[in-house]
């Protein structure tokens, strides 16, 4: 296997509050190799976005990385500060957020934003950058790209804007793209277009992608591997087909089973009792133990083993026969 583009080791993010220290990300480890799409799924509050923000150094204080390491292309980046981090962020990491307007400056023409990003990070001339900006917009499927480079962000529809954001994220030829709920605000038909685009471009360029979403369908269709997060911890990590069709962690199993698609033809949907614990009330032992149908005494005291490689963070992982 090729050397990973991004490698996260035992990452822990802490937020000190007056009621104690919260851990929105707690001992998470995973790798992403070039050309691979790693899906990060979890429910709101599971810490999936926080892990992405830690990688790009955009944790809003008082949240901070308390433990662990982040390696990008063989260099450690979790301790970089200020200017050094900014340079890495623009050059090595591209970002696509749920709301395209957070990545685009509303006062600048999109062409200028593309040119500026390329000039900052690539050794090319202004004329060359302008040529590449048009090519980049053509590549993401903006009709009439040569004319549209002079438009402002508000002149595009939601779907087109997200295409522009993808062009902007890719124009400095980064090795990693972090896509945080990139299609959540879009309609189904546009979502399909954007996902197809993201998949094609990253595969062609060998870019690693961290795809953060709550939509299991999107993960199933786009991701190569998937990491399931629960209460700040990694519950399960593995190839997407295995995790979805043969989950080993009881939480993953419950999550998959509770989607209406999985209960086709049944009168009632599968449901996991209770709700994910709030960060100030994560139970001892395995965080999932109060909701787990297979809970045993050990789960209440010892935190589950960490999920690394292809594994579930569970003392008693499900064997497939038990499920059907």
């Amino acid at each position: 296997m090729a050397a990973p583009v991004l490698s996260i080791r035992n990452l822990t993010v802490e937020i000190p509050t007056r009621h104690g220290i919260l851990k929105p990300v707690d001992g998470v480890s995973y790798d992403i190799v070039g050309g691979e799409i790693l899906g990060i799924v979890g429910e709101s509050g599971a810490g999936k976005s926080m892990a992405g923000n830690a990688v790009i150094g955009l944790l809003s204080p008082p949240a901070h990385i308390a433990k662990g390491e982040i390696w990008l292309n063989g260099a450690r980046v979790d301790q970089l500060k200020g200017e050094a981090m900014r340079r890495i962020r623009g050059k090595e990491i591209g970002m696509v957020f749920q709301d395209p307007l957070t990545s685009l400056n509303p006062l600048l023409r999109i062409g200028d934003q593309l040119v500026e990003t390329m000039l900052t990070h690539l050794p090319i001339s202004h004329a060359e950058a302008e040529k590449r900006a048009i090519a980049a917009l053509e590549e993401v499927g903006i009709p009439g790209a040569a004319k549209r480079v002079n438009s402002y962000p508000h002149e595009f529809s939601g779907g087109m804007r997200q295409r522009v954001v993808i062009a902007l994220a890719l124009c400095a030829e980064p090795s990693l793209i972090i896509a945080d709920e990139p299609t959540t605000a879009l309609d189904v038909s546009v979502q399909a277009q954007i996902m197809a685009l993201l998949k094609r471009l990253c595969r062609d360029r060998g870019t690693a992608v961290m795809l953060i979403t709550h939509d299991m369908g999107v993960i199933a269709e786009a991701a190569d591997r998937v990491a399931v997060m629960y209460a700040g911890r990694l519950a399960e990590l593995g190839p997407v087909r295995e995790v979805i069709t043969a989950p080993r962690h009881p939480y993953t199993h419950g999550l998959m089973a509770s989607t209406p698609l999985a209960s086709k033809g049944q009168k009632r949907l599968h449901q996991i009792p209770g709700a994910m614990p709030r960060l100030d009330a994560v139970p001892d032992g395995c965080a999932f133990n109060p909701r787990c149908p297979y809970v045993q005494d050990k789960c209440r005291h010892a935190p589950g083993p960490t999920a690394e490689g292809n594994a579930a963070a569970c003392w008693f992982p499900l064997v497939q026969e038990e499920l059907s």
Partner: peptide, 24 residues
């Protein structure tokens, strides 16, 4: 038909469907 095709599917691993044309 288009809506059904565009909706992501849990069993659509690596599905390479042609996305629908145009926007609303």
């Amino acid at each position: 038909q288009m809506l059904l095709d565009a909706a992501p599917r849990m069993d659509g691993f690596g599905r390479e469907a042609t996305p629908p044309e145009g926007e609303i």
